[in-house]
Structure formats: C-alpha cells, structure tokens
C-alpha cells in the first residue's frame, strides 16, 4: 500500500512516551506523519479493548508506548500492560489480524530519537503488510 494511506494509532503515556514525542518535536526530528497519538495518563490504563477498537475503526496498526520498567509514574502500570499485550498478540493471531500489526515498547521523555525510530519502523512494517483487513471485510459484508 502507499505510505500515505498507512494509518497507525499510537497510545502514549503522559509522563514518558508523550514527553518522548515532545522531545522528537522540539528537536525537529523527522518521522512519517501516519500516526495519531492518543495520550493516556499511564500505559496501565490501556485496555485490550482500546487496541481492538482502533482496528475496528480502520487502523492498520497500533503502537502502545509507556515508561521504561521501573519508571512508571504510578509504580507498576507498565508491567501490567506488558502482560496484557502478550495476550493481545495471541488474540490478534487467532483473529487473523496478525500480531505484527501491534507493537509495544518503552520510550522515555528524553528518547525523542527512539520515538521517531519506532514510528518509522512501524510505518515501514505496515506498508509491507498492507491495509488491515478488518474494516474492509466488515464494510464489504454490510
């Protein structure tokens, strides 16, 4: 698919990853514009429902980013997210979405470069995979 059509929803926790996005911005790093960032207070707030909803509404990929282990502002939200995402990958495989379309990682507020690299990596990956089949298939049936 064309790079312009790639749609990625990215969840960032307020205290680290969103700061990472800021750092990438203020230091004028270049990264593709295909992401829609949704800020949540902590990655521990991100439920599998959010990830699935993103696909339902037409996202081609989802990135979830939180603080590094040990850095979570609320102590351990990111550990819980970590376990949750392992189940989400499995579910995505079973439902034919493919686990490659989902990615979670830890990005601190100073890691603007890691933020930009993560986005670049996912955009390339999704471009190769093509658009997510869910919305297409449901729309075609309706």
């Amino acid at each position: 698919m064309a790079e312009d059509d790639v749609k990625i929803v990215m969840f960032c926790c307020n205290w680290c990853s969103y700061g990472g996005a800021d750092t990438a911005g203020t230091s004028r790093m270049q990264y593709p514009p295909n992401i829609r960032v949704i800020r949540v207070m902590c990655s521990g707030r991100i439920e599998p429902q959010f990830v699935l909803k993103a696909f339902r509404e037409g996202a081609d990929g989802v990135i979830v980013a939180g603080c590094h282990h040990g850095d979570c502002h609320y102590d351990a939200g990111n550990y819980k997210l970590d376990r949750r995402m392992r189940l989400v990958y499995k579910l995505a495989e079973d439902m034919g979405i493919g686990k490659e379309r989902i990615y979670h990682d830890w990005i601190s507020a100073s890691e603007g470069e890691k933020f930009a690299d993560t986005v670049k990596m996912m955009v390339t990956r999704i471009k190769e995979l093509g658009s997510a089949p869910l919305k297409e298939q449901l729309d075609a049936e309706a």
Binding site: R83, R86, L87
Partner: peptide, 30 residues
C-alpha cells in the same frame, strides 16, 4: 463493557502475578 472478552483479558493479565509484578516473566500468563 464494550467487549467482554477483551475486558476479561485485561483483568486476568493484570491480576496474574500481581504480587511479583516487577519480576514475573510477562510471557507467563499468555
């Protein structure tokens, strides 16, 4: 609840090993 299964996945993954939150292998529950 929007999606019963996803909600439950969330609950089980969070409760699993919560006492050793920071040391448990995250893959274990899956």
């Amino acid at each position: 609840v929007m999606d019963q299964g996803a909600k439950m996945i969330s609950a089980i993954a969070s409760d699993y090993g919560i006492e050793e939150d920071k040391t448990i292998d995250p893959e274990q529950v899956a």
